[in-house]
Deep mutational scan, measured.
Amino acid sequence: MIINNLKLIREKKKISQSELAALLEVSRQTINGIEKNKYNASLQLALKIAYYLNTPLEDIFQWQ
């Protein structure tokens, strides 16, 4: 199981879903879906999320 901390980290950094989506060149709905565990981010997208949030990938998506 993967624990998804994207919403928590994004909100801590005061970045909206729309802002993050624009940086990543995806839709806001994609970010929303990832945060609600409706969609799994591809490895490429997960790495981009970590880069733009300046946060280690394993802090955003944790295996349990």
Results as ranks from 00 to 15, higher is better:
5 N>D: 04
5 N>W: 09
4 N>W: 04
42 S>G: 11
27 S>Q: 05
36 K>P: 01
2 I>Y: 12
6 L>Q: 02
33 G>R: 15
41 A>L: 15
14 K>P: 02
33 G>T: 07
39 Y>W: 12
41 A>I: 15
2 I>Q: 07
14 K>R: 12
27 S>I: 04
2 I>C: 14
28 R>G: 05
27 S>E: 06
63 W>L: 07
23 L>G: 09
1 M>W: 08
52 Y>E: 06
22 A>Q: 13
32 N>A: 15
21 A>Y: 02
59 D>S: 09
5 N>P: 00
21 A>P: 00
42 S>P: 14
56 P>N: 08
40 N>G: 14
41 A>F: 12
52 Y>L: 12
8 L>K: 15
3 I>L: 14
49 I>T: 02
40 N>W: 10
43 L>G: 06
60 I>W: 02
51 Y>M: 10
43 L>N: 06
11 E>S: 08
56 P>D: 08
63 W>Y: 09
64 Q>Y: 09
24 L>F: 01
63 W>R: 06
47 L>Q: 13
44 Q>T: 13
60 I>G: 01
7 K>L: 07
6 L>W: 01
45 L>I: 09
63 W>P: 06
35 E>H: 02
63 W>C: 09
38 K>P: 05
40 N>M: 14
6 L>Y: 00
21 A>I: 03
64 Q>A: 14
50 A>Q: 04
36 K>Y: 06
50 A>C: 05
28 R>S: 11
7 K>P: 03
19 E>L: 07
38 K>N: 09
25 E>H: 15
62 Q>P: 12
39 Y>A: 10
57 L>S: 03
24 L>D: 00
37 N>R: 08
11 E>N: 08
18 S>V: 11
33 G>P: 01
36 K>F: 06
13 K>N: 11
46 A>L: 14
41 A>H: 04
45 L>V: 06
46 A>H: 03
54 N>H: 09
27 S>R: 09
30 T>Y: 15
56 P>A: 09
24 L>A: 10
61 F>T: 01
30 T>A: 08
9 I>W: 07
31 I>Q: 00
7 K>Y: 04
21 A>H: 02
42 S>T: 12
5 N>L: 07
46 A>D: 00
32 N>R: 15
40 N>L: 11
47 L>P: 00
34 I>D: 01
59 D>Y: 08
1 M>E: 06
29 Q>E: 15
4 N>D: 03
23 L>A: 15
63 W>K: 06
27 S>V: 04
33 G>I: 08
22 A>F: 10
20 L>Y: 02
42 S>V: 05
11 E>H: 07
41 A>W: 06
55 T>Y: 05
5 N>A: 05
47 L>R: 13
36 K>S: 14
6 L>H: 01
8 L>D: 14
17 Q>Y: 03
15 I>N: 00
41 A>Y: 05
39 Y>T: 11
7 K>N: 05
33 G>Q: 15
33 G>N: 15
5 N>K: 06
36 K>A: 13
26 V>S: 02
21 A>C: 04
38 K>Y: 14
10 R>D: 03
14 K>E: 09
25 E>S: 12
19 E>G: 10
9 I>Q: 04
22 A>V: 11
40 N>P: 15
38 K>H: 12
20 L>K: 00
33 G>M: 15
61 F>W: 09
21 A>M: 02
50 A>F: 03
15 I>P: 01
20 L>P: 00
50 A>K: 01
58 E>N: 12
5 N>E: 03
58 E>L: 09
54 N>E: 15
54 N>P: 02
10 R>T: 03
63 W>Q: 06
25 E>M: 13
14 K>Y: 06
46 A>E: 03
15 I>K: 04
44 Q>F: 11
38 K>Q: 14
50 A>N: 01
17 Q>R: 08
54 N>Q: 14
6 L>T: 02
13 K>E: 06
10 R>F: 06
28 R>F: 09
24 L>K: 00
28 R>T: 15
13 K>D: 03
64 Q>K: 12
14 K>Q: 12
13 K>L: 13
7 K>A: 12
47 L>T: 12
61 F>E: 01
3 I>E: 08
20 L>T: 00
32 N>Q: 15
26 V>Q: 02
2 I>T: 10
20 L>A: 00
8 L>A: 15
2 I>E: 05
52 Y>C: 08
28 R>M: 13
22 A>I: 12
51 Y>Q: 09
53 L>A: 02
20 L>M: 05
25 E>G: 15
33 G>C: 15
15 I>F: 09
53 L>Y: 02
51 Y>P: 00
55 T>A: 07
9 I>M: 07
59 D>I: 09
60 I>R: 00
55 T>L: 05
42 S>F: 04
17 Q>F: 03
27 S>M: 03
20 L>S: 00
41 A>V: 15
40 N>E: 12
43 L>A: 07
38 K>M: 13
32 N>T: 09
37 N>L: 07
29 Q>G: 11
15 I>S: 00
38 K>G: 07
7 K>M: 08
10 R>L: 07
28 R>A: 14
62 Q>D: 07
45 L>C: 05
8 L>N: 14
63 W>S: 06
26 V>F: 02
23 L>M: 14
48 K>I: 04
18 S>W: 11
24 L>N: 00
47 L>E: 12
7 K>T: 07
1 M>K: 11
19 E>W: 06
11 E>I: 12
57 L>G: 03
52 Y>N: 04
39 Y>F: 14
61 F>K: 01
38 K>L: 13
22 A>S: 13
38 K>W: 13
55 T>C: 07
57 L>P: 04
40 N>H: 13
18 S>R: 14
37 N>S: 10
13 K>Q: 12
31 I>T: 01
45 L>T: 05
14 K>D: 08
18 S>F: 08
56 P>H: 06
17 Q>V: 13
35 E>D: 02
7 K>S: 08
58 E>R: 11
10 R>W: 06
44 Q>V: 10
2 I>D: 04
40 N>C: 14
61 F>Y: 04
9 I>D: 01
61 F>V: 02
57 L>H: 02
42 S>M: 04
19 E>C: 07
9 I>C: 08
41 A>C: 15
31 I>M: 04
53 L>E: 01
44 Q>N: 12
35 E>G: 03
43 L>I: 12
27 S>N: 09
47 L>F: 07
6 L>P: 02
64 Q>T: 11
59 D>V: 09
61 F>M: 03
16 S>H: 04
49 I>D: 00
30 T>E: 08
16 S>I: 04
22 A>K: 13
51 Y>L: 10
26 V>D: 01
59 D>Q: 13
28 R>W: 14
25 E>T: 08
36 K>D: 12
47 L>C: 15
8 L>E: 15
51 Y>T: 08
44 Q>R: 12
1 M>P: 10
28 R>Q: 14
26 V>H: 02
19 E>H: 11
31 I>F: 02
47 L>V: 12
4 N>K: 03
14 K>M: 12
31 I>Y: 04
34 I>S: 01
20 L>R: 00
15 I>G: 01
62 Q>A: 10
48 K>D: 05
16 S>D: 04
38 K>A: 11
23 L>N: 08
62 Q>I: 11
36 K>H: 13
14 K>L: 10
12 K>W: 07
58 E>M: 10
30 T>I: 15
49 I>F: 04
61 F>Q: 01
54 N>A: 12
39 Y>E: 10
25 E>K: 15
25 E>Y: 07
8 L>P: 08
37 N>H: 09
53 L>S: 01
27 S>L: 03
30 T>W: 11
41 A>K: 02
16 S>Y: 04
13 K>V: 08
49 I>E: 00
16 S>F: 07
30 T>F: 13
51 Y>V: 08
1 M>V: 12
37 N>T: 04
22 A>P: 00
44 Q>H: 14
51 Y>K: 10
49 I>Y: 00
57 L>R: 02
39 Y>K: 11
58 E>C: 11
5 N>S: 04
60 I>D: 01
64 Q>D: 14
37 N>K: 08
49 I>C: 03
5 N>T: 03
12 K>T: 11
48 K>E: 05
61 F>S: 00
27 S>H: 06
3 I>W: 07
23 L>Y: 14
46 A>F: 06
13 K>R: 13
58 E>Q: 11
60 I>A: 02
6 L>E: 01
4 N>E: 03
2 I>S: 08
47 L>A: 11
27 S>C: 06
44 Q>E: 15
18 S>C: 11
28 R>D: 11
17 Q>T: 07
1 M>R: 10
55 T>W: 05
30 T>Q: 08
3 I>Y: 08
53 L>F: 07
64 Q>L: 06
17 Q>W: 03
52 Y>H: 13
44 Q>D: 13
16 S>A: 06
14 K>C: 11
39 Y>P: 03
21 A>R: 02
19 E>P: 01
24 L>W: 01
3 I>G: 10
51 Y>G: 06
20 L>N: 00
35 E>A: 02
45 L>E: 02
29 Q>R: 14
10 R>S: 03
22 A>L: 11
53 L>V: 03
18 S>P: 06
59 D>L: 11
4 N>P: 04
43 L>C: 14
12 K>Y: 09
56 P>C: 07
64 Q>R: 11
15 I>C: 06
2 I>P: 07
46 A>M: 14
51 Y>A: 09
36 K>W: 06
35 E>T: 03
